[in-house]
Write a protein that binds this DNA or RNA. Structure first.
Lengths: 118, 118
DNA sequence: TCGATACCTGCCCAGATACGCAGCTATGCA
DNA sequence: TGCATAGCTGCGTATCTGGGCAGGTATCGA
């Protein structure tokens, strides 16, 4: 099990075999990146508040979200655009009203986890 | 149930009662902030890689972490300082070697969750 | 005692990001 | 047709943060 890439194979290790275990534990860079990106979306208090409201209350309109969170409309809209681009939420148009809801299962699980101890 | 704060009670709502539900769903601002801060720590690919390695492999030395992740020593040290200040990891000194491990239960649960589908 | 190693810290810079404002489009109602 | 509302977008700014470099401290081996 020599998982250490060639460009750093000459560096001295403390626990050689544990380094290989660690590399295996980290897994694919793309996978790690996907999760860190997901966590980034939850790392902002305003966005997290929006997602908690959507997750626990269900479909909500933009201006209602603005009132509930104390944000102004453009801020809510911009946050939802980010979340929509990431595939976390989806909006359903009904006349001039758009109601958003959480559609990403992984994020929903994280939100449930974070609401469990509240 | 009039949970809407006075400073925005005059704004028009789409679904009035749902706004109150949403405010209740969001919960205390401090609680939301605590979780967004926690997610921030996992939002960086390098830090997440370090935490995954520590969580799944166990105690690891700084230079071994540097080799496993491809980071240089100061970068690893600085990331660990951040995580240590947040109470996520702890280091145990053994001679001139310091081995770190994850000590925060909430973060460990998130890491397990994120390793489950990998 | 001398050198090498393991780790930490302080600085500066480039890149990313959230916020606020002004303005735009589209829908519904009178 | 005129007007108010719901939502979206672009721009400029202030702020934060990760990354690299140089240098410092402590421990181990010769």
């Amino acid at each position: 099990m020599h998982l250490v890439p060639a460009d750093r194979a000459d560096r001295r290790t403390i626990d050689g075999h544990r380094v290989c275990d660690a590399i295996a534990a980290i897994g694919e860079p793309g996978h790690v990146r996907a999760w860190s990106d997901r966590f980034s979306l939850l790392a902002d208090p305003k966005r997290l508040a929006l997602l908690l409201a959507l997750h626990r209350t269900g479909p909500l309109a933009v201006s209602d979200l603005a009132i509930a969170t104390g944000m102004n409309d453009p801020a809510v809209s911009q946050a939802l655009r980010l979340l929509r681009a990431a595939g976390v939420v989806e909006g359903e148009k009904e006349g001039r009203i758009v109601r958003y809801r959480v559609v990403d299962g992984d994020v929903a699980a994280l939100l449930k986890h974070c609401a469990a101890d509240g």
